[in-house]
Design a protein around this nucleic acid. Structure first.
Length: 877
RNA sequence: GGGCGCAUAGCUCAGCGGUAGAGCGCUGCCCUUACAAGGCAGAUGUCACAGGUUCGAUCCCUGUUGUGCCCACCA
């Protein structure tokens, strides 16, 4: 980004460090990644004795490139996997891509359209050839991005849903379903996209509120007339009845009669059907069985004809003046014609109503009667629901389980056939006399006159539903299947819980003898911009993760994403935050530089506790605590929490305090310095290990420099050694309290941070005596000189610090500060006293709480005494 | 129309029956020999509103308002 070499104060007199003063991600990331891959760290060995840890990539569409949402998902998967690898698991992070039927076909067709061609100009085979060609050209983009991000995937196992092996899996499972009568062919109303020219499943339809027009039309004449309302007037050409509720008095006389259908010269029956809501509108409904799912059912119940009046492109096919018009043109033309005949009795405009759109191309969906293949989901969904119900599969966060059940318990049959060319062609052959044969992977299709294969392909989600085991070589019972199925976790967005997760659950259990495909499902949220807004290209707030990685480094992007990953909730991310993470990486960099410059060591065992200083014991105690915390957070998939815990431990405790304290020790030299060097090395060693899964690059660079170890990727994950030292933690807390208090005083007095001040410390009666040198150094306090004149004396935490300000003390400022502190302490005292005077409180509150209040009161009283003393010690203004 | 969730610092979000937290932003002083991508110090909240339970409520309950998401065949 900017040229950093111009920093004016680059320490020219500091010992030539091996590492530059700033971390430059670009210099190391690419090299490190390639080294990791070359050494085979990410490969998974099915013959390994180690326990397996398996996770699959939610396969991205070959068409695409990765966006920030992928970067987020990959960060979580990669972090979880890297930790497991360090813990000694045989890890498989399975890479691959999805052929993404409609999406990919659309992209290639668009390319063709540039040359004025359609897929039909090429023909099926040539077109598919063309798609493969396109896939080969563009598929590399995604793996390039994954490398940049640092994804530790087993590249040798990369799979594609249209691979030969995966196609075999598809064919195998289809055949099994066919033989078990769990797939069938039926004519129904399906969601049809008039642009993609294919059926799509219910969940591929996106509903949104559109402005339409509700037109009320009078069918029939005089007594024999009813008013019906519609937003799709063009479908009236296909009406074959008017339906009313059986109990509706208003229309009872008409049921069984025929009335005139305007514009057509046809007469249609009035039927009674309980589906009609008599309260809604006029209580009479026009029935278009070929173009509406409800009407289709009414039509079936009453044996009505089901003429189609729109073709696959949404053009009117019904003979007459409207033939050849597009559905929307036809709509206004028909309303116009009806109006001219005085048939329109009411119009509501705009009329907001929910309209279905193709999730791929946003074209308005047209319900259409057609012959399709279906999966009978009932028998598959039941076990998929039970596996979660009985706890064999856990969903994180738990709140999402309800959504899962809502879905899996109310599934409709799944329309799996698509009128596309790009995809797995349905392995069914039709014979000349209506025969139907499903052909398994090792079977020969029937030959002879009149046999032909089904032209439809399968829904993309059909093959992705097999992903957790098809990638392992199934249907072969490979070593990998044995070793790595079921997957340990699945990490994916809550938005594809239904599309993908449910299908994997159903197919996994069906194919693998009832074994669910994973043990734990971890659902994450969506990445949003820094204001919580959805990222989208059209809105202009979409971010290419590569741009940020270029500027700030992959670790910064990863850390920012991990730090935002609260379970199941959306993740806002802004460039400022990435910058903050970059700063953190740089901070780690410099802290380790400091350690290296001061001879921190990782060799040999840690000194025995009795050799350690209080600061050493404090930081080691904290370190072990943090190890335990981080582990607990990992086990609960709390990526935000563990990132935050590490951030604050590293920066606030290790860097801001332990490193600062160690400076004094190093300066003094001697055995204590050696001990501290070893402890500093230990603390950094462990901290870098803990951070590695989230920020692999910077930690790897530093850790190898610090320890000379081979690689953090295969280093051991730290364990909580159980070392705790509450006394040392308290002792250092007191040091911190004193230092902070005096710093505050200094700042209020307007003393420049670097300015040395003669001071006398009276630390008697406190645990602070051994820390005098450190305290003096942190506070820039000099020994008292010849004519020492204390003008300010601060009793803090039982110790006294007398500063010689040579008469320059700003009494007013200090008085103000102390007055404020005094007021706070008095308020505190009043509150605590009030509570402790409350019988009810004393009677009912648990003892620890009461105790806490007592301590608060004691502290407040001490503070009051102390501050009062300080005030009294102030010279007159 | 159902279901779920959320309202906490300027922004984005944690937290949670017992003294309000983080990141970024903001203010002041400082190139203190690891780091100015830094250090030190500091300011900032009727925890949406109204009731209730409790010794005690930001947290639990009820209602109100606002807001987001998912599902649904309402012509």
């Amino acid at each position: 980004m900017t040229d950093n070499t111009q920093r004016p104060h680059d320490g020219h007199n500091s010992p030539a460090p091996e590492l530059p003063t700033q971390y430059a991600p670009a210099d190391v990331e690419g090299k490190l990644y390639e080294r990791w891959v070359e050494r085979g760290y990410f490969e998974a060995d099915a013959a390994s004795e180690k326990p397996p840890f398996t996770v699959v990539i939610p396969p991205p569409n070959v068409t695409g490139s990765l966006h920030l949402g992928h970067a987020f998902e990959h960060t979580l998967i990669d972090a979880a996997t890297r930790r497991k690898r360090m813990q000694g698991f045989e890890t498989l992070w399975q890479p691959g891509m999805d052929h993404a039927g409609i999406a990919t076909q659309n992209v290639v067709e668009r390319e063709l359209a540039k040359d004025g061609k359609s897929r039909h100009d090429l023909g099926r085979e040539a077109f598919i050839e063309r798609v493969w060609q396109w896939k080969d050209e563009s598929g590399g983009q995604i793996s390039g991005q994954m490398r940049r991000l640092g994804d530790g995937v087993a590249w040798s196992r990369e799979r594609f849903t249209m691979d030969e092996g995966l196609s075999r899996a598809v064919q195998t499972i289809f055949k099994k379903l066919y033989d078990d009568e769990l797939v069938y062919r039926a004519e129904r109303i399906i969601n049809w996209c008039p642009r993609c020219l294919t059926a799509i499943s219910d969940i591929e339809v996106e509903y949104q509120e559109d402005d339409g027009e509700l037109v009320s039309i009078r069918y029939g004449e005089g007594e024999a007339s009813v008013v019906v309302a519609t937003t799709r007037a063009e479908t009236m050409l296909g009406d074959t009845a008017v339906a009313v509720h059986p109990d509706d008095e208003r229309y009872r006389h008409l049921v069984g009669t025929e009335i005139e259908l305007p514009l057509t010269g046809r007469r249609i029956p009035v039927v009674a059907d309980a589906h009609v809501d008599p309260e809604f509108g006029t209580g009479a409904v026009k029935v278009t069985p070929a173009h509406d799912p409800n009407d289709f059912e009414i039509g079936q119940r009453h044996g009505l004809p089901m003429p189609a009046v729109l073709d696959e492109r949404g053009v009117i096919t019904a003979h007459g003046p409207f033939q050849g018009l597009d559905r929307f043109e036809a709509r206004s033309a028909i309303v116009g014609a009806l109006r001219a005949e005085g048939r329109v009795v009411a119009e509501k405009r705009p009329y907001k109503h929910s309209v279905g759109h193709c999730s791929r191309c946003k074209t308005t969906i047209e319900p259409r009667l057609s012959m399709q293949w279906w999966v009978k989901v009932g028998p598959l969904a039941k076990p998929a629901g039970d596996a979660v119900r009985d706890g064999r599969v856990a969903i994180h966060p738990e709140e999402m389980t309800k959504r899962y059940f809502d879905w899996v318990d109310n599934l409709h049959d799944w329309c799996i056939s698509r009128q596309l060319w790009w995809g797995h062609r349905i392995p069914v052959w039709y014979g000349p006399n209506g025969e139907m044969v499903c052909v398994g992977p090792d079977e020969e299709p029937p030959t002879g006159e009149g046999w032909h294969q089904e032209t439809d392909v399968l829904d993309t989600w059909f093959s992705s539903g097999l992903w957790p085991f098809s990638t392992l070589g199934w249907p072969e019972r490979t070593e990998s299947v044995e070793k790595f199925y079921p997957n340990s976790i699945l990490v994916t967005g809550y938005d594809i819980l239904f599309f993908w997760v449910v299908r994997m659950m159903m197919f996994g259990m069906y194919a693998m003898d009832g074994t669910p495909p994973f043990q734990t499902i971890v659902l994450h949220g969506m990445v949003r911009d820094q204001f919580g807004k959805k990222m989208s290209k059209s809105f202009g707030n979409a971010v290419n993760p590569l741009d940020w990685m270029d500027t700030y480094g992959s670790d910064a992007v990863r850390f920012t994403l991990a730090r935002g990953a609260n379970p199941g909730t959306d993740v806002p991310i802004g460039e400022d935050w990435v910058q903050g993470s970059r700063n953190f990486a740089n901070k780690i960099w410099n802290a380790t530089r400091f350690a290296l410059m001061n001879g921190a060591t990782v060799d040999g065992p840690l000194p025995a506790p009795e050799e350690l200083s209080a600061a050493d014991r404090w930081i080691l105690s904290r370190l072990n605590t943090v190890v335990a915390e981080v582990d607990a957070y990992y086990d609960d998939y709390q990526f935000a929490k563990l990132s935050d815990a590490l951030f604050h431990f590293a920066w606030d405790e290790v860097f801001d305090w332990y490193v600062e304290l160690s400076k004094t020790t190093f300066q003094a030299g001697g055995p204590a310095a050696d001990v501290s060097r070893r402890v500093l090395g230990e603390v950094l060693d462990v901290t870098l290990r803990l951070l590695h899964p989230i920020v692999p690059f910077v930690t790897e660079t530093l850790w190898t420099a610090l320890t000379g170890g081979e690689s953090l990727v295969v280093a051991q994950w730290p364990a909580d050694g159980g070392f705790r030292d509450a006394a040392a933690e308290r002792e250092i807390a007191v040091v911190q309290e004193l230092v902070t208090e005096v710093r505050r005083f200094r700042a209020d007095q307007g003393l420049q941070p670097g300015q040395k001040v003669p001071a006398r410390l009276d630390l008697t009666g406190t645990a602070l005596a051994p820390h005098e040198a450190a305290i003096r150094s942190l506070l820039r306090l000099q020994p008292e000189g010849e004519g020492f004149t204390a003008t300010a004396s601060l009793p803090v935490v039982g110790a006294t610090v007398a500063l010689d300000l040579s008469g320059t003390i700003d009494v007013a400022a200090e008085r103000k500060r102390l007055a404020k502190d005094l007021a706070a302490a008095e308020k505190e005292k009043a509150q605590a006293t009030g509570k402790l005077g409350n019988e009810a409180f004393l009677g009912k509150a648990p003892e620890p709480v009461v105790d806490k209040i007592r301590k608060r009161l004691a502290t407040a009283e001490e503070d009051i005494v102390r501050i009062t003393a300080q005030l009294a010690a102030l010279p007159e203004a």
